[in-house]
Design a protein around this nucleic acid. Structure first.
Lengths: 238, 238, 238, 238
DNA sequence: GATGAATGAGATTTCATTCAT
DNA sequence: CATGAATGAAATCTCATTCAT
């Protein structure tokens, strides 16, 4: 009695958290309403009270997941850095966000199997991803101005590229491991891969430019310090 | 009534074909044994007669899918071309193989959700993918000898990269479309993307080399003709 | 529709009652979950709600049956009588308990076919049967003191004997009837048999003693009255 | 091809043998036609070819089992001995026949659950059991003449008694063991029980007679020798 | 807001039996 | 005499959802 939470917000959140795990682990069809309720130590009715149906819960889970994921990409923060560093940071943040939210990958895969029917309705998506594309455009332009990036690069393609390179490695880890007979799950393997894809994306943006950026006509201080701190990408071996 | 097939090989194949579609479309848990049997115009016990269980059928489907997919990558054929062309062809074949087998992507995603538990047992996988890695190694070495590719490139990383860039675009088409507000499904969009990723992979292998390959010390004729036939990658716009 | 019972205890009991009949009549494998649910006017999942599985229900049925059966043997009550009467009453109660619970016999047979795997786990059994053996030991000792029973009789053997003689007649009634060409099911036949086995068991315990019991050194009154009330066993004819 | 038996009689017998085991172990409903065929290394069709149906096979199994069982009781042979020995031998043969054919017990139990509907139709039963009753009657009469058995004993009751005492111990071994917390399966325990029931049956027939049989008026030689060889029943302990 | 009891539809799997060769 | 392929009916068990309190 006393222990019943009676805190609607917390109850809702608890349901979402455990539902996320369940849907990610088992897929939409494999997920069990009972199982979620049990893990929440709640009766199934609460689930229906808050989300109306299994599908309603799934949609809520998807939205929450995207929100969380986008937050961790911290793309607005990277604008402060110089273009090359910013790009690298974006790759790192994206990779790490996915690494830290393995559920997110499974949920997106599931949603793609459904041809995006759930998120298509959610207006939130555009609001979440517009800033990201704008940030990339901003970085590319700044890089162009600085003479480190070439012109004519499509920000969407940059995102698709880095997204592919981050996502696929993690999403298809198991089948890739079996197919190639390699280990992809260790810290070291992941660090190698991250270095590799950072190099790839950077190379794409800087291709054809001289190694030394032409000195900017009007130097923009305050970003110089950070630029020097950039680590060189590690060459892979495994 | 009129024509019970009485052709076990065909019956088996029919089951596999329809099961592939069903598993890909609905996932393992969403797939219905009834539905498969119905589409095969067979009673469902035949499914158990041939594959013992739903899971057994799923494993058989996975194996058949990988076999088919690998065949379409035509990597051995690709060795005949000059290195740069060979690499491009490999990207194209990989992309087209996935494009032509959308079921394959869904099945692999499903299998990764299961942490690869089904294919891990199948010994077939290594036999299927070993030649692929060897082909890439062969191409990279030839390219190195010809002076078009740089040294020290890991064939596995090349495969992981091109695989990521081919797979993710198709696998996550729907969520990416919603997030970025772009069309990825049209012929044109796909051609653009294919050109882009071909450029990316090529750039990665040729990075740092002079545009004109140094003339080989001992010219290997018979490959020269093909080399000239290579199409230039199209620059994307969308 | 009108009256969903909403009385869990009653629902559980209803399930047990009908399951007992079904399992006894059809055996474990022949018993149908549907059939039980139907007779309870419940949907079959309630069966799983309360007992988890068909086997779980079977175990519960077995336990309930043993409890009921032991209650009807009324062995503790029997101690009040003089030894010879007590023994006779025990035989009668045992025979009648089995006669009144034909399901019990079928369930025990079934359980023996399963080599006792279900009840072996139930700790209840020893608690139920310990008092019975103790009662027999008590009767035998009292009879020994009174000089009506001989010494050195194993109470377990007494129980095994009377149990065999009660059980087999009822359990194998049908095959025995066909084999011997006699009627065993009529009231009269049963009374004859009961008289016969009572005589047998009594004879076993009194064998070698003089007909008149030696007068007890310290007469225990209060049991004398009952002793005289003992009916003579009827000699059989059929 | 060469290894196909092509020996109808043997095929039939093989089916019966394995079906006996299967029906005894799993009961009629639990028994699987597939399982029987598999163990015979035959296709299921053969089973239907020879026995028409699962039920037909069960009936055949029952008949064969009774025939085998009765053979092992060797009751006709027993007539040669003196009455007391003959009786003891009959108990021993009956107990051992059941001990050696545990399947027989399960099959009879099963048939009794079916209220004897299968064997009731088989005319064989009377032919099999008539001689047994006649043998007992013969022994009892001879014993009466010899002055070792009392008069007025019903041979059917003698058979029912010894049958109960042999059968129940073996049939209900597992539940009895759990209930009483004793071991009934060891060689020693069985020997003790056999001695006990032999004593019980003998006691029943000799009850009220003097220990020494009155000398027969017309001595029937040739049986005297055997009579002296009779072992004393062992008193049980466990 | 919260719950235990109940449900109907449907899931996978099983099984005795038959067909075609 | 013998078989592998096929079936229809039904078995156990599951699951999202709702009712009554």
């Amino acid at each position: 009695m006393a222990s019943r939470s009676r805190d609607p917000a917390r109850t809702r959140e608890k349901l979402l958290t455990h539902a996320t795990t369940e849907f990610a682990r088992k897929g939409y069809d494999g997920a069990r309403v009972d199982s979620i309720a049990l893990r929440c130590k709640l009766s199934k009715n609460m689930l229906y009270y808050y989300f109306e149906s299994k599908e309603g819960l799934f949609v809520a889970v998807l939205e929450r997941m995207y929100e969380k994921l986008r937050t961790q990409q911290k793309d607005l923060a990277v604008r402060a850095s110089d273009p090359a560093s910013a790009l690298k940071q974006l790759v790192h943040h994206t990779f790490n966000a996915l690494l830290d939210n393995p559920d997110a990958i499974r949920l997106m895969n599931e949603e793609n199997r459904h041809k995006g029917k759930h998120i298509r309705q959610s207006g939130r998506m555009r609001d979440l991803y517009n800033p990201l594309v704008e940030t990339i455009r901003f970085i590319l332009e700044r890089g162009r101005e600085d003479g480190v990036f070439r012109a004519g690069i499509d920000p969407a393609f940059v995102y698709l590229s880095l997204s592919s390179l981050c996502y696929h490695y993690l999403s298809n880890q198991y089948t890739l491991e079996v197919a190639l007979g390699v280990d992809l799950g260790s810290e070291k393997a992941r660090a190698n891969w991250l270095a590799h894809i950072t190099e790839l994306v950077t190379m794409y943006c800087t291709s054809g430019m001289t190694a030394m950026p032409s000195p900017p006509t009007s130097p923009r201080p305050g970003r110089v310090t950070k630029r020097t701190a950039t680590k060189r990408p590690i060459r892979q071996s495994a």
